[in-house]
Protein backbone atom coordinates (compact mmCIF):
# COMPACT_ATOMS: atom_id res chain seq x y z
CA UNK A 1 0.00 0.00 0.00
CA UNK A 2 1.43 3.40 -0.89
CA UNK A 3 1.48 5.95 1.88
CA UNK A 4 -0.95 8.83 1.60
CA UNK A 5 1.65 11.37 2.52
CA UNK A 6 5.42 11.08 2.70
CA UNK A 7 7.81 13.82 3.71
CA UNK A 8 11.42 12.84 3.17
CA UNK A 9 14.20 14.84 4.86
CA UNK A 10 12.33 18.10 4.41
CA UNK A 11 14.26 21.26 5.19
CA UNK A 12 12.69 24.69 5.47
CA UNK A 13 14.82 27.81 5.68
CA UNK A 14 13.48 31.32 6.34
CA UNK A 15 16.21 33.95 5.79
CA UNK A 16 19.10 31.85 7.13
CA UNK A 17 16.96 30.40 9.91
CA UNK A 18 16.54 26.63 9.61
CA UNK A 19 13.01 26.12 10.86
CA UNK A 20 12.95 22.49 9.79
CA UNK A 21 16.14 20.44 9.76
CA UNK A 22 15.46 17.42 7.61
CA UNK A 23 12.30 15.86 8.96
CA UNK A 24 10.81 12.66 7.53
CA UNK A 25 7.37 11.28 8.13
CA UNK A 26 5.05 8.81 6.38
CA UNK A 27 1.30 8.79 6.93
CA UNK A 28 -0.75 5.80 5.79
CA UNK A 29 -4.11 6.21 4.02
CA UNK A 30 -6.93 6.57 6.53
CA UNK A 31 -4.54 7.12 9.36
CA UNK A 32 -4.59 10.02 11.79
CA UNK A 33 -1.08 11.16 12.55
CA UNK A 34 -0.15 13.73 15.19
CA UNK A 35 2.71 16.21 15.39
CA UNK A 36 3.46 17.40 18.92
CA UNK A 37 5.88 20.02 20.10
CA UNK A 38 6.24 23.44 21.60
CA UNK A 39 6.51 26.76 19.81
CA UNK A 40 9.47 26.81 17.44
CA UNK A 41 9.56 23.03 17.17
CA UNK A 42 8.73 23.20 13.47
CA UNK A 43 5.50 21.21 13.67
CA UNK A 44 3.41 23.90 11.99
CA UNK A 45 6.19 24.61 9.53
CA UNK A 46 6.12 20.98 8.37
CA UNK A 47 2.38 21.26 7.80
CA UNK A 48 2.80 24.51 5.88
CA UNK A 49 5.64 23.06 3.84
CA UNK A 50 3.36 20.24 2.75
CA UNK A 51 0.61 22.71 1.89
CA UNK A 52 3.02 24.80 -0.15
CA UNK A 53 2.91 27.75 2.23
CA UNK A 54 6.51 27.48 3.41
CA UNK A 55 9.63 27.41 1.21
CA UNK A 56 11.08 23.89 1.01
CA UNK A 57 14.87 24.18 0.73
CA UNK A 58 15.54 20.47 0.21
CA UNK A 59 13.92 17.09 0.60
CA UNK A 60 10.83 15.76 -1.10
CA UNK A 61 7.12 15.47 -0.40
CA UNK A 62 4.93 12.78 -1.95
CA UNK A 63 1.15 12.77 -1.93
CA UNK A 64 -0.68 9.55 -2.83
CA UNK A 65 2.44 8.27 -4.55
CA UNK A 66 2.95 11.39 -6.61
CA UNK A 67 5.98 13.58 -5.84
CA UNK A 68 5.21 17.29 -5.55
CA UNK A 69 7.06 19.91 -7.55
CA UNK A 70 7.99 23.38 -6.47
CA UNK A 71 4.55 24.69 -7.37
CA UNK A 72 1.40 22.91 -6.30
CA UNK A 73 -1.12 22.28 -9.07
CA UNK A 74 -4.87 22.48 -8.77
CA UNK A 75 -5.19 18.70 -8.51
CA UNK A 76 -3.09 18.81 -5.33
CA UNK A 77 -5.52 21.16 -3.62
CA UNK A 78 -8.38 18.79 -4.34
CA UNK A 79 -6.53 16.07 -2.45
CA UNK A 80 -5.08 18.09 0.41
CA UNK A 81 -6.84 20.78 2.41
CA UNK A 82 -6.03 22.57 5.63
CA UNK A 83 -7.77 23.91 8.74
CA UNK A 84 -6.00 26.74 10.52
CA UNK A 85 -5.50 27.40 14.20
CA UNK A 86 -7.14 30.75 14.66
CA UNK A 87 -10.77 30.69 13.59
CA UNK A 88 -10.85 34.46 13.99
CA UNK A 89 -8.12 34.93 11.42
CA UNK A 90 -8.83 32.24 8.87
CA UNK A 91 -12.19 33.54 7.62
CA UNK A 92 -12.24 36.62 5.40
CA UNK A 93 -13.83 39.41 7.48
CA UNK A 94 -15.79 40.82 4.55
CA UNK A 95 -17.29 37.61 3.20
CA UNK A 96 -20.38 35.73 4.24
CA UNK A 97 -20.24 32.02 4.99
CA UNK A 98 -21.95 31.47 1.65
CA UNK A 99 -19.25 33.37 -0.21
CA UNK A 100 -16.48 31.58 1.72
CA UNK A 101 -17.83 28.19 0.72
CA UNK A 102 -18.51 29.30 -2.86
CA UNK A 103 -14.91 30.33 -3.42
CA UNK A 104 -13.27 26.86 -3.59
CA UNK A 105 -16.06 25.65 -5.88
CA UNK A 106 -15.61 28.65 -8.16
CA UNK A 107 -11.83 28.20 -8.28
CA UNK A 108 -12.15 24.58 -9.34
CA UNK A 109 -15.10 25.19 -11.61
CA UNK A 110 -17.40 22.84 -9.72
CA UNK A 111 -21.10 23.22 -10.42
CA UNK A 112 -24.19 22.61 -8.26
CA UNK A 113 -22.76 24.88 -5.58
CA UNK A 114 -26.22 25.38 -4.10
CA UNK A 115 -26.49 21.72 -3.13
CA UNK A 116 -22.89 21.36 -2.07
CA UNK A 117 -22.92 24.40 0.21
CA UNK A 118 -26.10 23.28 1.91
CA UNK A 119 -24.71 19.77 2.36
CA UNK A 120 -21.38 21.06 3.67
CA UNK A 121 -23.09 23.22 6.30
CA UNK A 122 -25.30 20.32 7.24
CA UNK A 123 -22.30 18.05 7.65
CA UNK A 124 -20.51 20.33 10.12
CA UNK A 125 -23.65 20.80 12.17
CA UNK A 126 -24.51 24.32 11.08
CA UNK A 127 -28.01 24.84 9.74
CA UNK A 128 -28.80 26.96 6.71
CA UNK A 129 -29.51 29.81 9.15
CA UNK A 130 -25.77 30.41 9.25
CA UNK A 131 -25.31 30.57 5.52
CA UNK A 132 -25.52 34.31 5.02
CA UNK A 133 -23.76 35.43 8.17
CA UNK A 134 -20.48 37.26 8.25
CA UNK A 135 -17.72 35.72 10.33
CA UNK A 136 -18.07 38.38 13.03
CA UNK A 137 -21.61 37.12 13.61
CA UNK A 138 -20.27 33.67 14.55
CA UNK A 139 -18.72 32.28 17.73
CA UNK A 140 -15.26 30.75 17.71
CA UNK A 141 -16.60 27.21 17.50
CA UNK A 142 -19.00 28.10 14.69
CA UNK A 143 -16.16 29.74 12.77
CA UNK A 144 -14.05 26.63 13.08
CA UNK A 145 -16.97 24.56 11.78
CA UNK A 146 -17.17 26.86 8.76
CA UNK A 147 -13.43 26.45 8.24
CA UNK A 148 -13.85 22.67 8.34
CA UNK A 149 -16.77 22.86 5.90
CA UNK A 150 -14.63 24.95 3.57
CA UNK A 151 -11.81 22.41 3.71
CA UNK A 152 -14.20 19.51 3.07
CA UNK A 153 -16.16 21.05 0.22
CA UNK A 154 -13.47 20.10 -2.31
CA UNK A 155 -13.70 16.50 -1.05
CA UNK A 156 -10.00 16.07 -0.26
CA UNK A 157 -8.58 12.77 0.97
CA UNK A 158 -6.01 14.37 3.29
CA UNK A 159 -6.72 17.05 5.86
CA UNK A 160 -3.94 19.09 7.47
CA UNK A 161 -5.06 20.33 10.88
CA UNK A 162 -2.97 23.12 12.43
CA UNK A 163 -3.95 23.32 16.12
CA UNK A 164 -7.62 23.33 15.12
CA UNK A 165 -8.94 23.64 18.67
CA UNK A 166 -6.26 25.46 20.66
CA UNK A 167 -8.02 28.82 20.37
CA UNK A 168 -11.31 27.38 21.59
CA UNK A 169 -12.83 26.87 25.02
CA UNK A 170 -12.62 23.36 26.41
CA UNK A 171 -16.30 22.57 25.90
CA UNK A 172 -16.18 23.86 22.31
CA UNK A 173 -12.96 21.94 21.73
CA UNK A 174 -14.75 18.72 22.59
CA UNK A 175 -17.48 19.46 20.05
CA UNK A 176 -15.01 20.28 17.27
CA UNK A 177 -12.85 17.22 18.02
CA UNK A 178 -15.97 15.04 17.87
CA UNK A 179 -16.90 16.63 14.55
CA UNK A 180 -13.43 15.99 13.16
CA UNK A 181 -13.63 12.34 14.22
CA UNK A 182 -17.07 12.04 12.71
CA UNK A 183 -16.11 13.38 9.27
CA UNK A 184 -12.95 11.32 9.25
CA UNK A 185 -15.00 8.18 9.80
CA UNK A 186 -17.64 9.17 7.24
CA UNK A 187 -15.22 10.17 4.52
CA UNK A 188 -12.29 7.86 5.36
CA UNK A 189 -9.94 10.82 5.55
CA UNK A 190 -6.26 10.90 6.38
CA UNK A 191 -5.35 13.43 9.08
CA UNK A 192 -2.07 15.10 9.82
CA UNK A 193 -2.74 17.04 12.98
CA UNK A 194 -0.54 19.51 14.82
CA UNK A 195 -1.06 20.30 18.48
CA UNK A 196 0.88 21.34 21.54
CA UNK A 197 -1.55 19.35 23.66
CA UNK A 198 -0.52 15.72 24.13
CA UNK A 199 -3.96 14.76 25.39
CA UNK A 200 -5.63 16.06 22.23
CA UNK A 201 -3.17 14.19 20.02
CA UNK A 202 -3.59 11.06 22.11
CA UNK A 203 -7.34 11.32 21.69
CA UNK A 204 -7.31 11.99 17.95
CA UNK A 205 -4.36 10.11 16.51
CA UNK A 206 -3.10 6.55 16.17
CA UNK A 207 0.53 7.53 15.78
CA UNK A 208 2.46 10.67 16.56
CA UNK A 209 5.81 12.33 16.22
CA UNK A 210 7.37 14.55 18.88
CA UNK A 211 9.30 17.50 17.53
CA UNK A 212 11.72 19.98 19.07
CA UNK A 213 13.78 22.78 17.49
CA UNK A 214 13.04 21.68 13.94
CA UNK A 215 14.02 18.05 14.50
CA UNK A 216 11.96 14.91 15.04
CA UNK A 217 12.58 13.65 18.58
CA UNK A 218 10.74 10.36 18.33
CA UNK A 219 7.79 8.57 16.77
CA UNK A 220 5.29 6.81 18.97
CA UNK A 221 2.02 5.01 18.87
CA UNK A 222 -0.77 6.62 20.87
CA UNK A 223 -0.77 3.58 23.16
CA UNK A 224 2.85 4.34 24.11
CA UNK A 225 1.69 7.58 25.70
CA UNK A 226 -0.83 5.74 27.83
CA UNK A 227 1.74 3.19 29.00
CA UNK A 228 4.46 5.86 29.32
CA UNK A 229 6.54 3.81 26.96
CA UNK A 230 8.66 6.71 25.73
CA UNK A 231 12.40 6.83 25.19
CA UNK A 232 13.34 10.47 25.01
CA UNK A 233 13.64 12.81 28.02
CA UNK A 234 11.89 15.60 26.19
CA UNK A 235 8.84 13.44 25.56
CA UNK A 236 8.83 12.44 29.22
CA UNK A 237 8.83 16.09 30.23
CA UNK A 238 5.96 16.86 27.87
CA UNK A 239 4.06 13.91 29.24
CA UNK A 240 4.63 15.05 32.81
CA UNK A 241 3.61 18.62 31.98
CA UNK A 242 0.34 17.40 30.50
CA UNK A 243 -0.66 16.04 33.90
CA UNK A 244 -0.84 19.51 35.43
CA UNK A 245 1.02 21.25 38.19
CA UNK A 246 2.64 19.19 40.90
CA UNK A 247 3.72 21.04 44.02
CA UNK A 248 7.33 20.48 44.92
CA UNK A 249 8.13 18.97 48.30
Amino acid sequence: MTAALVADRVEVVFDQFRALKGVSVAVQPGESFGLVGESGSGKSTLLRAIAGLAPVASGSITVNGKPLGRRRDKAFYRQVQMVFQDPYGSLHPRQTVDRLLQEPLAIHGIGDSEVRIRRALEEVGLGSGFRFRYSHQLSGGQRQRVAIARALILEPSILLLDEPTSALDASVQAEVLNLLEQVRRDRKLTYLMVSHDLAVINHMCERLMVMQNGVAVEQLAAADLVSHNVAQDYTKRLLKASEGFVRAG
Binding site: A51, G52, L53, R72, D73, K74, F76, Y77, R78, V80, Q81, M82, F84, Q85, D86, G89, S90, L91, H92, P93, R94, E103, P104, I107, H108, A147, R150, L154
Partner: peptide, 26 residues
Protein backbone atom coordinates in the same frame (compact mmCIF):
# COMPACT_ATOMS: atom_id res chain seq x y z
CA UNK B 1 0.12 36.79 5.49
CA UNK B 2 -3.19 36.41 7.26
CA UNK B 3 -4.69 32.95 7.46
CA UNK B 4 -7.71 33.86 5.37
CA UNK B 5 -5.46 34.69 2.42
CA UNK B 6 -3.42 31.51 3.04
CA UNK B 7 -6.71 29.63 3.07
CA UNK B 8 -7.61 30.75 -0.46
CA UNK B 9 -4.05 30.10 -1.57
CA UNK B 10 -4.34 26.47 -0.57
CA UNK B 11 -7.61 26.24 -2.44
CA UNK B 12 -5.50 26.80 -5.52
CA UNK B 13 -6.65 30.33 -6.30
CA UNK B 14 -4.53 32.23 -8.82
CA UNK B 15 -2.66 35.35 -7.66
CA UNK B 16 -4.89 37.52 -9.82
CA UNK B 17 -8.00 36.12 -8.21
CA UNK B 18 -6.58 36.54 -4.73
CA UNK B 19 -5.68 40.18 -5.36
CA UNK B 20 -8.95 41.03 -7.08
CA UNK B 21 -11.41 39.18 -4.90
CA UNK B 22 -9.75 38.89 -1.52
CA UNK B 23 -7.17 41.62 -1.07
CA UNK B 24 -8.73 44.55 -2.92
CA UNK B 25 -11.95 44.50 -0.87
CA UNK B 26 -9.80 44.93 2.24
Amino acid sequence: NSDYIKAVEIMGASPGRIILRHIMPM
